[in-house]
Write a protein that binds this DNA or RNA. Structure first.
Lengths: 349, 349
DNA sequence: GACACGTGAGGACACGTGTCCGCGTCAAGC
DNA sequence: GCTTGACGCGGACACGTGTCCTCACGTGTC
């Protein structure tokens, strides 16, 4: 409060101790909460800190060997809502456990430099969120393993050597197909869902499995027009896809989209062609973003269970700290949850 | 590549120098790119770094007095899309200028602790993004000023002592009203827009100004039902507000919403009451989020010009570094931009 | 053979902190 | 008056790095 005109900020405990009129060691003991100090002394230091705004130099503190209590978080970007929701949840959990987060965005081709930055900051673990060039990530994980730095990869495919937490997308699509079949649908348009990615946890695997269960032949019951348009996985991609489907004679009655944006685009495309949703066509998204409740009709989607994903993820990564390196990669899967809304709430035809 | 079985990671240049077979000082000179070294020596060090994954301890480097090149970014939350977009843009700019960002979310009541954390990390400046408890923020800014640490507050009202970059919301609403008046609208419903905030740059100020320009008496031409519902500034708030408006005999033909979520909720509420948009009612949002292009009809909104805001913001904050403290707070304003879409693209019925 | 020059070794110090240790000082209790 | 604690002082060392300095070694040149 006393402004003090502050000639210049105090930058060391020595200087600060002179200001308070105590020995540097005494001040240090106050700051670290050691016993054997008079309440009066403690209060003098507290007051002086408020007056001067002095803070111990974190770099010197960490240097002396105290744990850095820092976790590196490596993001693909900060643009997709789901990625950011994961980041927010993650930072909240770490903060609750007294860890500081070091958040960085990875530009493809610079992963090596970024990891080196994390290591130079002596992070105790690294979390990867988003999708990265797989060969680059595999390489970095191998280096981290050799280096003994714990890690976890959140929901990324094709990184067999990594500890990871992955959403069971197959399970999600099984629920979607079950739901639509129960509503009477027998023909399905696939929007942006292709076979070339993922393994047993992949979407396509779930769709095939579910159709087989209902004795519906995959080849006859599904249709994809992805090859007709530039794949951007966004609203516009969904809209043009749907426009193409709308021109078909025997078009599917249900449409499964890779994500919510494509699904919403598809709804626009279908509606623009005069097709009623859900009366004449059902549409499903994936990710269950807030936006799903704001469309007309509201959009049935699959929720990623982000909170639980992050909870498990932090568990996986924190359990490695201070332990000998694991030989076998950890794999935890998360069950998504189908959220049914208006866009699938009618029987076809 | 060579795995090397890595007994344990190398943690100091001394140890590393022994590994390479050079003197510590020589290694240090290589790492800092000093002249007078044989290419062969440099290459030996590079190779050893690749083999061992050794990285210099950042805490020791910074301790020796080298600038920390770190900027603290204080966020309200990581949930709203606009806040996150600002964060992403900010980090990108700082990275391009070789600054590291320290990103933290501020929980109300803990601002003092957070700022102390930033200061202990010896950040060279602090950026605030989002809305905070004003008295708390005013206090923190005063402390930063006394401490000599540069700062900038992005788009926050009621912080007169801070350097800040603020969106001219009045300008945005003037453009909105001009547009709607040109389309023939004369009566306006206000959704979540109240007078109790902001000054000359506030929305209400712009609305009043614009209506006056068109000789439309404010009291007769505008209507607010905010008091009827719990103010949450979200989709549901907009929906219920619109439902209330729909029951009015002489309801307005145009609706100005505080943000996009309310606007979209309002569109749902009006449409549910059988009112056609834009034929029977026009709706405008604010922020121009991606979602505006995904609704039916697409939503006219006001773009925050985030890129420019951040560009100016970094300019303001970086210009303070290494300079004597400014006595007068800097204030830069940003002109928003009206994006016209379907939701206002008709003359009232 | 003397000299300059290029290259690297190795010692020294500083940065700000935590912690240990021995030594004063002061007050209370006998 | 003496002992005994409680409390604080001040010296010392370590942490890993950058930088400066002196010194040694080798090579090429005159």
């Amino acid at each position: 409060m006393k402004k003090k005109s502050s000639a210049r900020a105090i930058t060391s405990t020595a200087e600060f101790a002179r200001y308070v009129g105590l020995a540097r060691t005494t001040v240090s003991r106050v700051l670290n909460g050691q016993p054997g100090l008079k309440p009066n002394t403690i209060e003098r230091v507290q007051r002086a800190m408020d007056e001067t705004g002095f803070t111990p130099n974190a770099y010197a503190v960490r240097l002396k060997g105290k744990s850095t209590a820092t976790i590196g978080i490596c993001m693909e970007d900060l643009l997709t809502p789901t990625a950011v929701k994961k980041l927010a949840a993650l930072q909240r959990v770490f903060r609750g456990r007294q860890y500081t987060s070091l958040i960085e965005v990875l530009e493809p081709g610079h992963s090596r430099r970024l990891i080196r930055h994390f290591l130079s900051m002596r992070v105790e673990a690294i979390v990867f969120i988003g999708h990265f060039p797989p060969d680059e990530l595999v390489q970095r994980i191998a280096e981290l393993n050799a280096h003994g730095t714990p890690h976890v990869v959140i929901d990324h495919v094709g990184i067999p050597n990594a500890h990871r937490v992955t959403l069971d997308r197959a399970r999600g699509m099984i629920d979607v197909v079950d739901h639509l079949v129960a509503r009477g649908h027998r023909s399905f348009g696939l929007l942006g869902i292709s076979a070339w990615l993922h393994g047993k946890l992949g979407r396509m695997h779930g769709i095939i499995q579910a159709l087989a269960k209902h004795k519906l032949p995959f080849a006859q019951c599904t249709r994809s027009l992805d090859h007709l348009h530039v794949r951007e996985n966004d609203f516009e991609f969904g809209r043009t896809l749907a426009a193409s489907f709308a021109t078909l004679k025997d078009r599917p009655t249900a449409y499964l989209a890779l994500n919510d944006e494509i699904a919403i685009g598809a709804m626009h495309g279908l509606q623009a062609a005069g097709i009623d949703i859900p009366g004449e066509a059902a549409v499903t998204g994936f990710n269950n973003q807030e936006i799903c409740a704001m469309t007309r009709p509201t959009l049935t989607s699959v929720d990623q269970q982000i909170e639980e994903t992050i909870r498990i993820g932090t568990e996986v990564v924190l359990s490695q700290i201070g332990q000998p390196p694991r030989v076998k990669p950890i794999l935890r899967t998360i069950e998504p949850k189908l959220i049914i809304r208006q866009s699938t709430d009618a029987r076809p035809g």
